[in-house]
């Protein structure tokens, strides 16, 4: 019995690997077709890059908020670290583009990860509401310091003329970064490391008693989340060409949170879909841009109320929706 089950399980894993490969191939074909056929035009091609930034940011926040279960309100802060570090590297080095990009990405990710480690230390002693506030405070401190060290960051005016390495002209590079980032994060989630993180979320007392070092895994989740937020920041900076502290404000953190909440906490697929839809939709409905944040706010409230309502419970219990809601495992 155990043996058969293991075989079936291995088969399942292999199937999902093939599925992933197919999805990735389709993503490449789809994006290449969209861009090279010119259907998108200039404006929508640049939306593609925003979509990419938001996907990486949302999935990396999901790691912390969805899988570790700790609300982070300072994700934009990590993106800022990545954006500034990356931009400073590519601005000050005079090397061939591929080398600069590689160093910039590595620097952006690593620097953000270091800050993830720093913020991870208070995290050890806190959780829930207090932790959320510390992450918020952290985001504010980053912005404040970026404003202060003018000689390096240009203060409130920010950095200009950043090399346009990740604009829509380089969409294949950006797409590859998205694919790699998401793949790495989803593989981590599906490994023993991800399992430990999820166990901490579900019941940290039991997780600890089961031999999991909560401290290490909490920090680990924050560091990995921050690393990829840094990567997203790099892409952001080298797409728009100009960055200032005010761009990475609390609003940005909330935007990313909306993707995670709407897509479903603990669902990577959901984060991706939400990031795509919520980035493209406002673009398509330009006239309603004033209502975008209002809509986001309503989404946050309604999703939370619905998720915890009797209505949802009834729907889940009485209908075929049960599978949809309860089967969350094996998801990439």
């Amino acid at each position: 019995m155990a043996n058969e089950f293991v075989k079936a399980k291995t088969k399942e894993v292999r199937k999902s690997t093939i599925q992933k490969a197919v999805i990735i191939a389709l993503a490449y074909v789809g994006v290449i077709a969209l861009v090279s056929s010119g259907v998108l035009g200039y404006q929508y091609s640049s939306v593609l890059i925003s979509v990419a930034v938001n996907i990486i940011a949302a999935v990396s926040l999901n790691l912390v908020t969805g899988f570790l279960g700790e609300l982070s309100l300072g994700h934009a802060g990590f993106m800022a670290i990545g954006a500034y570090t990356g931009a400073l590297i590519t601005l000050h080095l005079n090397l061939p583009a591929p080398v600069e990009i590689f160093l910039g990405l590595a620097g952006a990710g690593i620097m953000a990860a270091i800050f993830g480690l720093i913020i991870g230390i208070p995290v050890l002693r806190l959780h829930g509401d207090y932790l959320a506030i510390v992450t918020l405070a952290f985001g504010q401190i980053i912005a404040s310091i970026l404003n202060y060290v003018k000689s390096i960051t240009g203060g409130a005016a920010g950095l200009n003329n950043i090399e346009e390495y990740t604009t829509s002209d380089h969409y294949l590079l950006v797409l590859t970064l998205v694919v790699l980032s998401v793949l790495i994060m989803s593989n981590i989630i599906n490994s023993r490391y991800g399992r430990a993180i999820t166990a901490v979320r579900d019941n940290y007392i039991a997780a600890e008693a089961t031999g999991i070092c909560i401290r290490n895994y909490k920090i680990f989740a924050f560091v990995v989340g921050a690393f990829f937020a840094g990567i997203a920041g790099f892409i952001f900076a080298h797409n728009v060409g100009v960055i200032k502290p005010s761009k990475f404000d609390f609003n940005m953190s909330i935007n990313i949170l909306v993707f995670v909440v709407l897509g479903g906490m603990g669902s990577i697929k959901g984060s991706i879909i939400a990031a795509v839809v919520l980035t493209v939709l406002p673009e398509a409905l330009r006239g309603l841009s004033d209502y975008r944040m209002l809509m986001y706010a309503v989404i946050l409230i309604v999703v939370m109320l619905f998720n915890n309502s009797k209505l949802r419970k009834r729907l889940v219990e009485e209908s075929g929706l049960k599978k949809l809601f309860t089967k969350k495992k094996g998801e990439a």
Binding site: I184, N187, I188, N190, S191, R192, Y193, G194, R195, A196, T198, A199, R201, D202, N203, I205, A206, A207, T210, G211, I212, G266, K328, K329
Partner: peptide
Amino acid sequence: RLFGKMTVLENVKVGLHSQYKYSLFAGIF
């Protein structure tokens, strides 16, 4: 105190966590 949102199997696998180890890179690849 179970890990409520994980499957029965996953709950037990958390228990096995410290005995079946592999590196982060093994996990990523």
